[in-house]
Design a protein around this nucleic acid. Structure first.
Lengths: 210, 210
DNA sequence: ATAGTTCTGTAACTAATGTTACTGCTTTCT
DNA sequence: AGAAAGCAGTAACATTAGTTACAGAACTAT
């Protein structure tokens, strides 16, 4: 049931009865397969998603097609860019893609605006999420500025392992290169270096984070 | 007068009479000299500033003392990190420094919380500012990921020229290096390159952006 | 099983950035 | 004017990252 799921993953929103009732009334739960693009860069925001199960990735795209992973959307979170972009009625500056099959509460854009006006609790939720994601961006900038790619790569692998709940990552070097905005050869070289340093173990199609 | 200043730079907050009155009642205007640190990394937020005149810079500090410029606070803006950090009652993750002598409306932290609760307009203001700064961070990440330092440097110089309202920047290579988290020698080399490409003119202590 | 595809390893080279070391030019202070 | 301090220029080298070009390993499908 959606009420239980909200309680479990969105306690801030679900503990207030009126807000919870409204949310349940206007939203629906959908299931999305890995690979689904839930928000395109340049697109207008039509829904606000609340992630119940699964994982999504948010990217910044460059003009010529390259992209960088900015942060993840995990259970208990929403797409903060959708929320604030909706309020400003602007176009999305990022792209969001489902990474693992996901279950998502979907709130229509217009209804979400009503909720925001009606319930200060919603603002609290948004502020907190905003702050978390802002800090994640700060951290990306810090690493990009002061660390070499091998550090960035290792942090990425650790984060992936944590969020996916497994030390063994099923991915390819090419895929990592896309996420980090680098090239496959560079990633292969750095992964080999990390393996030699005893941080990871490489196998075909999998990386084990130690 | 503070009322006029609010009207001019913070129309979103000042057009609502009750909100404007409350703001004027609880805040005071202060003047700060260039170089003043208004928020330290790790410090708790005591005030929310509204910038009337001048310019401030916001930095992310690294463990060993290095820092990168994240974005500016210009007239009509506040320190978004102060606002959201205050709401979460956490420690600041950034450092803010006055860049040009500034005139600032200062709202005590506890009063700011009341304002936020009482006036949805305040939230609108915060959301908009948040979105703007978020996008600026996205842009920094994009440039750090996909561009070389010369591009980053040139964008920095153009931004400085715009915000300071002068094509002639009074700064040193060392100072730029601090802002961009690089070394003086690298910046000197790249500046010389930009000069050869006809983008800027270098003189002792000044850089003219063409 | 074998042919095709995808993934990985790696060498060799280029380009970009960081580091070290030193020189000379300005500005400022007395 | 002369000394000191701060600023800029630059060469030489080291390290890191990106690119090109293959080769071989491992998986997939018929």
């Amino acid at each position: 049931m959606i009420a239980e799921a909200l309680h479990q993953y969105f306690p801030k929103l679900a503990t207030m009865p009126a807000l919870r009732q409204d949310l349940i009334a206007i939203s629906k739960v959908i299931t999305l397969k890995a690979g689904t693009v839930i928000l395109k860069q340049g697109e207008y925001v039509k829904v606000i998603p609340l992630m119940l199960q699964g994982l999504a990735k948010v990217f910044k795209e460059e003009e010529n097609g390259n992209e960088v992973l900015l942060y993840y959307i995990k259970p208990g979170e929403s797409c903060i860019m959708s929320v604030t972009t909706l309020l400003r009625n602007g176009a999305s500056k990022v792209k969001a893609v489902i990474e693992e099959d996901s279950e998502i509460v979907v709130i229509p854009a217009d209804k979400a605006l009503e909720i925001a006006r009606k319930y200060p609790k919603w603002n609290e939720f948004v502020y907190e999420l905003f702050n978390v994601k802002f800090e994640e961006l700060l951290n990306v900038i810090k690493i990009l500025t002061f660390s070499n790619k091998d550090i960035r790569l290792l942090e990425y692998l650790k984060k992936e392992a944590t969020l996916k709940g497994s030390k063994i990552l099923h991915t390819t070097h090419q895929h990592i290169a896309y996420d980090l905005g680098s090239s496959r050869e560079v990633i292969s070289r750095l992964l080999k270096k990390l393996e030699n340093e005893g941080e990871i173990i490489l196998k075909q199609g999998t990386i084990e984070v130690l």
